[in-house]
Every structure is written in structure tokens, then in C-alpha cells.
Design a protein around this nucleic acid. Structure first.
Lengths: 352, 352
DNA sequence: GGCGTTTTGAGGTACGCAACTCATTTTGAG
DNA sequence: CTCAAAATGAGTTGCGTACCTCAAAACGCC
């Protein structure tokens, strides 16, 4: 006996614009005007039509709409120049989407710019006005950049900030993680993994000037102060995200403090830190936590030098940015739960 | 100076079937026949046309194809009856997709069945032959079920296993996590979080007969044996995923062993375990790790009773299953990186 | 060479919407 | 009431594909 119960999740009837027009007692042209808020419709007619659209939960057939549009949508990703591996992963995942994109007649371009110079970035953005239907921007939070983003938004371009937010701007969406929470997570993990021991904790970042680094440090210190106050946090080192410099700084730190039991690397340069650790022969005694999953951090996790990598999924960010831009361009709702980027805790056994 | 470099990720020309036909020197009808492997085309003509399609990286316009199809695609999710919160979350996220679904004229139905009785499940599946374009099935790995799945596949239905796999069948895809790795992750976390202490570790599951539970236990024991052999793993308890029973079992366990330092709940019933822990007043001294994120486990994480929740994202699974079924039905490639379900390690500070 | 079969061509229709034109009706101000 | 402006109706076209029919051509076989 196959005692099944069945339930449908979608409206049974597939209404069309024609049905809406008939029910509202207006012509197709008027429904079209209302749907795209074009001028030339009396306010109360607008209301009446909208009410009928809402009541019937009418959804324009996306395929039909897309086909009728004719021209393709153009999106662009404004990314930092240079060799940041995380950014390169995002670009790589965009590349993997190319079949998906072209089957939907979407064009995505990469624009590399000096993202860390606010005036250069702002100038770059200004030149893009009107060029694209949507932009995903790895942005610096700076007044000039904010103004450029707002200009783009005013010109009708959909703007999504990527990885690093500009909350004061009127960007439509942010695709990235909460870096304060990421720092808190790092702090909690360091505190938990060192166990009952007490001792010193080293912390190294690229630069305090980078918003994401600053936020992670803030979150980290917050947790350490409130929950692991018996641990002694050493002054912050700045490794500029470079392996060599990080290695030197950490080597010196390890030499000076034989009682270090934990290490947190806020930014890049993990390879350098790991090298300093292993050369000091202390990789097993010291809890080491860093960010991002690369071939390097993966290897370090597997061999046990690195205990935890806190990461955000670059593929997810790339795809989420595209999907959000597309939804914005189509005026459709965003599946917010889908587009939210999680803070991944990666250890040896749950490596993807 | 906005020194930009720009790169496009999509083919410049948007070819159509007509272009392919012209280049191949055949008619539209022939290209159509080749594209849908319909009979009546000489093998070498097929090859020639396919070669031109491949060379030009031609992608049929999905919107046009969808529109021309006419009839909607029908998918169904075969889910367990009962009140498993994880399954209910999957159903809830499917509900949240309804606007997305209806805008694409996709119909998704829920079919509730006694998934844990192989013959009932197999019989249910057999009745669905030909009814749907695609099925997502929470399946038990049993010969009868395997046969039913294979029959469906042979009849042209796209089949995706959900949460629990039937690897011996010819299902097109599995959407879910690697439960052995999940168990290993739990083991590594218990081992790491108890620190230098040694003592006993309790473990409770719903039933060893459930494949996912068995796999998690296997992974857990594997890690404990190889890396934390100083810890004493107590015999497995079976709480049948019920809160009351789990509470009783854990209460008794705690009474008998004052030196328990870690607890791993493999299945549901976390609320019961937590209650036993707090009533014994030992929630702070014992490392407690469980699965899945619910309102309950979220609360327990925030108040510190639960240290880590290992989870798979039900929303992601619901959406991935739909996307995979859709891609299969359209004969388009699957973005495997996107559809892969990760093992999430959730702690207080990285709760989504 | 004749026959039947297979292969191919040519063309049409429909899908639902965007975007447009142009004619007609309604409205409100004077 | 008059007239211009605003609102609306009615209609067309095209997007790229699926799916269909029917005729024509090519083919293989004896």
C-alpha cells in the first residue's frame, strides 16, 4: 500500500498577460505599461491592474520575456589587478560558467583596475556609466568610490559589491561575508583549540588599513577579550599579505616568545607563516588558523600545520553575484537565503 | 589614469540554429534532428553537423527552447512522511522557491511516502513512471528501491537521490553530503576540543540501520582510533531519533560515567541529549557535538550547551536538486562545483 | 532501370512577451 | 462647449526554438 500524500508547490494555472488584461478589462498595451511602469496610465488604473496581478500571483514567463527582449544583458566584474589568489579563483569560476552564460545570452566581462586606489577606482567606475546593465565591484569604502557607485545606480546600472562592501553607498546588494563574524569565529576557534593551556597568541594581518582585515581583527579581539582573557594577545604584525615578509616577522616572533600557543593570520601570506612555523619545529604545538582555501592552505591542512582555514566560497560568490545582477536586471525577487555567503570552517576532514 | 584591462568571458557572436544550418549546408530541420537525436539522418551528416555545432560552441538559446516547448516540466520530490525537521526544512525551502518556479513554468510536487520501508518506497516509485520529467528521492539503499530507480531511469525520467544515496542504482546524480567525512569531522572536533584531557566519549545515534548514521559512526570511530586513541569511546546508544528516549539514555550514561568529557549525537534527538546534560549540570564540562541546524540547535549553540553543529544546508539541497533536475531535463551540463553540498561546521560565531 | 526506403528540404505554426505605432476615447481646463 | 492633452485600445512585429507536415531528392537493392 503506497499511502502517498501529494502537494503542489506551484500555481496550477499558468496565466498570461492576456488573461490579466481580460480580467482587468483593459488592453494588453495598458498591462504592459503598468508592468514596466511606463507613463501614460491613470493612477487608479495602475492600481487596479497591479491589484489583479498581485491577486493572481501573476509571473511573467521569464523565457518569453528574455526572448522578446532581443538584446543581451551585459555585466562586468571590476576586480583588482595583481595576483591575489582569491580573486583569481573568482575569475576562474566565472570562466567555468561560460556555457551557462552564453546559453542565456548573457555577457560577462572582467575589468581589472587598481581597486586599492580610491581615485583610480572611482574614475574607472565613472567611465562605465551606461555601458553595462550590471556591475559587480570589489570596492574600497571611500567617499569617492561611494559617489561613483551612487552615480551608476542613478544611471540605472545595477550594482553589487563583491567581497568588500561599501555599505554607505546605495549599491543594490552585497555579496560577501561578515568579516567581523569571521574574526570572531577565528577567535573562538583559537581559544577552544588551545585547550586548557595558557600562553601567548600571535596575530598577523596584511594591513590594518584594509577594511576586511580591520574587521576580522576587531571580531577576533572582541572574542578573545570577553571569553579567553587568560590568553595574552601579542601586538599585531603587518605582513602586507606577502609570504617573505610574513615569514620573517613570524620567525622573529617565535624566537622572542617561546610560549606562543596560537597564531592567527588575518590575510594572505599563509605560506610564509607556515614556513616560519615548521622551520622553528613548532607546527605541532601551536594552533594555527588562517583564511581562504588555496592549494597551499589545503596542503597545510592535510599535513596538520594549519588547524583551521576560515573561508568564503569563491565559486559561490562569483555565481551569486551573477545571479543577483540577473535578478535585479529582470526585476525579480532575490532568493536571499541562496545568495548569502557563509563563513566556512574548513578542517582536514571536511575539505571540499 | 584608469589603467584597465578588460576581458570577455562569452562568445561574441550569438549564433542561432539558422547559422548552423547555413554553415553545414543543410536545412533547419536536419539540424533540429541532429540536435535532438531524432532518427532519419545519415551518420556522416550527423557527424558533420555535430562537428560544426562543437566548433562554433553553439548553445541553443535556453529561453527560446523553453518557450517553444510549450508544456511545463513536472518534477516531484519523494520525501519521508513524519516530522523530521530536516526534511521539513527542505520542504520549506522548496516553498520559498515557488515564485522562481512559476516564473519558469516549472511544477514541483511533494510526495510523502514511507521512505523507510523499501517495498513501500519501491512500489510508490513504480507508480510514478512516466508521470514526471524528474524526481528527487530520499531513498533507502535496498535492492527493491534500486530496481525501481533503474526502471524510472529507463523510462526516461531523470532521477536525483537526495540526502541519502543509492550508489548502486543508475540515478543521474546525488545531492547530499559524504556522511563518512561528516563523521570524521565530528571525531576530529571532539578530539581537538576536549584538549589535553583524557576520559570517556559517549556516542548516540538514531539507529545503526540507517545508512547515513552508520556512515557517520564509521567515520567517527576511524578518526578516534587513529588519532585520539587515548580517549575511551563508550558503546553506541540508539535513541531512535527521539528526544525522550535520548534523554533517558544519556541521563543514565552520565550517571554511570562521571568522567565523560565528550558527547556525539549522530542523528536527531539533540534536544533530549541537551536536557540530560543540563539537568546533570555538566553542559560546560562536556564537549557536545551534534548534527543539523534547527531552532533548537541554534539556541543550544548560542547558550554554549552545544559546541558544534555539523550540518548540511537544506536550502542548498532543495535548490540544487531542482537545478540538477532542470539541467538534466534540458540536457545541459551541471555546474558540479555549485551543486556539491558541503559539510558545514557551525559554531556560535558563524551561525548563518 | 525500377522500386521502395531513407534522407533531406522547405515551410509553417505556436510559444508569451517586449516594444512599438497609430487611432480613438476620455479627461480636465478655460 | 471647445480643444488640447492624457489615457487607452487595437494591432503588429520579432525573438529562437520545438514540433509538425509534406514533398522532393538520394539511396540501396534486385
Amino acid at each position: 500500500m503506497a499511502q502517498e500524500t501529494s502537494e503542489s508547490l506551484t500555481a496550477s494555472a499558468a496565466l498570461t498577460l492576456k488573461d490579466i488584461a481580460r480580467e482587468a478589462g483593459v488592453s494588453l498595451a495598458t498591462v504592459d505599461r503598468v508592468l514596466h511602469n511606463r507613463p501614460g496610465v491613470r493612477p487608479d488604473t495602475v492600481r487596479r491592474v497591479q491589484e489583479i496581478i498581485a491577486r493572481n500571483a501573476f509571473q511573467p514567463h521569464v523565457a518569453a520575456a528574455e526572448l522578446a527582449r532581443g538584446r543581451a544583458r551585459r555585466f562586468a566584474f571590476v576586480m583588482p589587478t595583481g595576483s591575489n589568489p582569491f580573486m583569481q579563483q573568482i575569475e576562474a569560476y566565472l570562466g567555468e560558467m561560460s556555457a551557462w552564460l552564453s546559453a542565456r545570452r548573457l555577457s560577462v566581462e572582467l575589468i581589472n583596475t587598481d581597486v586599492f586606489d580610491p581615485s583610480v577606482l572611482a574614475a574607472s567606475l565613472e567611465t562605465l556609466t551606461g555601458e553595462y546593465d550590471g556591475l559587480a565591484v570589489v570596492a574600497l569604502d571611500h567617499p569617492a568610490v561611494r559617489a561613483a557607485i551612487n552615480d551608476l545606480v542613478d544611471a540605472g546600472t545595477k550594482v553589487v559589491t563583491l567581497v568588500s562592501d561599501v555599505p554607505s553607498s546605495r549599491r543594490h546588494h552585497y555579496v560577501g561575508i561578515d568579516n567581523i563574524a569571521a574574526g570572531r569565529t577565528a577567535g573562538a576557534l583559537v581559544g577552544r583549540l588551545v585547550g586548557q593551556k595558557s600562553g601567548k597568541i600571535g596575530i598577523i594581518a596584511g594591513s590594518q588599513g584594509l577594511r576586511d582585515h580591520a574587521e576580522r581583527i576587531f571580531g577576533f579581539n572582541q572574542v578573545m577579550a570577553s571569553e579567553f582573557s587568560h590568553l595574552d594577545i601579542l601586538p599585531l604584525l603587518e605582513g602586507r599579505d606577502e609570504d617573505d615578509r610574513s615569514e620573517q616577522l613570524i620567525s622573529r616572533l617565535l624566537g622572542k616568545h617561546p610560549d606562543i600557543i596560537g597564531l592567527y593570520n588575518v590575510g594572505a601570506g599563509t605560506q610564509g607563516v607556515a614556513k616560519a612555523l615548521t622551520e622553528a619545529g613548532r607546527e605541532k604545538q601551536i594552533v594555527f588558523i588562517a583564511h581562504d582555501l588555496t592549494t597551499m592552505t589545503r596542503r597545510l591542512l592535510l599535513q596538520g600545520t594549519l588547524d583551521v582555514a576560515i573561508s568564503q566560497n569563491p565559486g559561490h560568490e562569483a555565481r551569486a553575484a551573477v545571479r543577483v545582477l540577473l535578478s535585479l536586471a529582470r526585476n525579480e525577487p532575490i532568493l536571499s537565503e541562496q545568495e548569502k555567503i557563509r563563513i566556512d570552517i574548513l578542517m582536514r576532514d571536511n575539505l571540499p
